[in-house]
Every structure is written in C-alpha cells, then in structure tokens.
C-alpha cells in the first residue's frame, strides 16, 4: 500500500524508487482543483459544456463566417470575396464594405424566391404524406405485442443499413420509363405506353417520403407508445365509439409526436439536395441545388451565403416551434 499523504513512508521503502515518488507526492501534494473550480463547476455543467463547445465550434463559428461572407462583395480571387474591413494607404485608413446587395439580389430575383417557395411546397407535401403513411404505422407498432414491437421497429430502421445514395439510385431503376414499375404495368397490359415517373415531382415525393419516413415514425411511436390505454376504455365507457375516441383522445394527445415528426421531416426536406437532383425535374430546382450551384459552379460565395442565411432564418421559425412543443411535453411529463 502506498500512503499518499500524512504519515511518513514505511522505513523499508524510503530508499527505493517508491520512496522517491512518495517524497515527491509529499512535497507537492496531489493535484487539487482550485477553490473556484470546486465551487462553480458541477459535473452537470461539465457534461453540458461538451455539446455547447461542439455547437459553438461547428455551428456558431461557421454560421458567423457564412453570415460575414453574405455581406461581402464578390471578387475574382481566392477566397472569392472581398474582406469586410480593409486597411488602405498602409494602414492609415480603414475601409468597410458592408454590402447588402446580395440580400437585395436574393430577395428581388424571382428565381430564388420561386425556388424557395417550390422547396417549401415539396417539403410540406412530403411531410403531410409522411404523416399520413407514418401515423398508422407508428400506431400499429405501438399497439403490437411487445415482442413483435421490437421486430417492427427494427424493420423501420433497417433501410438505414444501406447507403442512402444507393437507395435513391434504386428508385431511379424502379421509376424510369423502362424501369421495373413500367415494365410490370406494361406486361400486365394495364398501360400501353410507359408512364413518365422519373424526373417529376411525384418521384421527388416518393423519394423524400421513402427516405424520411423513419424520422416521422420514430417520434410518433415514442409518443403513442406512452399513451394510457385506460383513457380509451374510459372514453368507450362514456359512450364514445372507437373511431371517435381516436379523434378525441389519441390524436390530441399525440400532437407533440406529430410536431416532432413533421419538423424532423420538413426541415431537412426543404434543403434536400440529392433526391431532387437525382429524381426531380430539370426545369425546377430546389433551394439546396441552387445553394450548391452558387457555391461551386458560380463561385459566388456572397450570394450563396445570403441564400443560406435567408433559408436558415426561414427554417428557424419551425425549429423554435418544435422546441416550444418539446419543452411543453417535457413539463407535462414531469407532473
């Protein structure tokens, strides 16, 4: 046993290496937290600090950089924008070029506005479709026997085990004019001409609903699974038919789950880049595509940044609603 402090080391060890270690420890003492750290840093704060630092470094800082670029002028240089502050005449004059024209351009140019509105429409329709498909599935899983439940949940998550890109390409194979769906319909004699499925809004809806369905189902399931079945019994006892009980009891109580699921689908769907690029129309781009084109094809970083900022602000609203609901649900759960 090594005694760290207090009584001297046992005699036999005093000349050995352990004795030296002991002497050092005795002299300097073990490292101690300063009084401030002990009084003001709780374990809780340290745990919370980790995600805060993460978010600061990888969200706030990049956001501020993009925010700054959005006010710059485009310049054919590397990086391709003018600095906001410049020292001219060998440091004797500070010049600021705060350029709001990027925003004016983004807002006034019909292309950006219509693309943005189109993205919102695609995302909104996809979200509603996801809800209509996902709610019955989530409900079914929540009401299934516990053993079946975990199997069904695994099946919901199963598609994530293959690459997202691969799954979208697979949809191209299904939807194209000589694809699986058209071939089957033709051979059954249901249609004479191949249907135009690929490169349509429909294909984008299918792709988004297919890809984002788990994000709708999982929060809905988490909510529905907690519901107290005796509430439905009470409703039946009071004279409500099952159909009515669903609309009066289950549906209102699952609103937090619906909101969470919808936002988890809607927010990424607005900025979706891959699915509309691969499955969507060529004449109507989504905002994610515009963003990437401005950045990489046009190398117009200031305008791209302005697009990104406008999009972010427009999406911040639903996130804030989401957080309000989440907080409300948390408070309700505490009681």
């Amino acid at each position: 046993m090594v005694r760290i402090s207090g009584s001297p080391a046992p005699q036999g060890l005093s000349n050995s290496r352990l004795g030296l270690l002991h002497a050092l420890l005795h002299q300097y003492g073990p490292p101690r937290w300063s009084r401030y750290v002990r009084e003001h840093w709780s374990g809780q704060r340290l745990v919370i600090a980790v995600p805060w630092i993460w978010l600061f470094l990888f969200f706030i800082v990049p956001f501020l950089i993009v925010f700054k670029i959005s006010f710059s002028e485009i310049r054919l240089a590397m990086p391709p924008y003018a600095p906001l502050f410049e020292w001219l005449e060998e440091g004797r004059r500070l010049v600021t070029t705060l350029d709001l024209s990027n925003y004016a351009f983004v807002i006034s140019d019909g292309l950006y506005v219509s693309t943005f509105l189109y993205s919102l429409k695609i995302a909104a329709v996809s979200t509603v479709l996801c809800l209509l498909v996902g709610y019955p599935m989530a409900y079914g899983i929540a009401r299934a026997a516990p053993t079946t439940r975990s199997l069904l949940l695994m099946l919901i998550i199963l598609p994530f085990w293959t690459s997202f890109l691969l799954r979208v390409y697979a949809w191209m194979g299904l939807l194209k004019s000589d694809g699986v769906i058209n071939n089957v319909l033709l051979s059954l004699g249901l249609i004479d001409m191949p249907l135009t499925l690929l490169y349509t809004d429909l294909a984008v809806y299918i792709g988004i609903v297919y890809s984002y369905l788990p994000f709708m189902i999982l929060p809905l399931y988490a909510n529905l699974e907690k519901h107290d079945i005796t509430l439905l019994e009470a409703a039946a006892d009071l004279g409500a038919r099952p159909f009515k009980s669903f609309f009066l009891i289950t549906l209102p109580l699952s609103v937090p789950g619906i909101v969470a699921g919808c936002l988890l689908v809607f927010i990424p769907a607005v900025g979706e880049f891959v699915i509309p690029s691969l499955l969507g129309r060529a004449d109507q781009l989504m905002i994610g595509r515009i963003l990437s084109d401005e950045f990489f094809a046009n190398r117009d970083w200031p305008v791209a940044s302005a697009v990104a900022i406008v999009m972010l602000i427009a999406l911040l609203l639903p996130i804030m609603i989401f957080q309000r609901y989440q907080r409300r649900e948390l408070e309700a759960a505490k009681r």
């Binding site: 107290d228 005796t230 509430l231 019994e233 009470a234 409703a235 039946a236 006892d237 009071l238 004279g239 409500a240 038919r241 009891i249 209102p252 109580l253 309700a332």
Partner: peptide
Amino acid sequence: TPPYERPVNMMFQSYALFPH
C-alpha cells in the same frame, strides 16, 4: 352490447381523466 352502449359507467382505479 359494446362498452359504449352499456347503461353502466365506471370509475377507474387510476381515474383515467383525460389529461388534455
């Protein structure tokens, strides 16, 4: 006769009040 048509009402042990 299903529960919603019976001339009986129940007070549940957990009360089963509708929280919303």
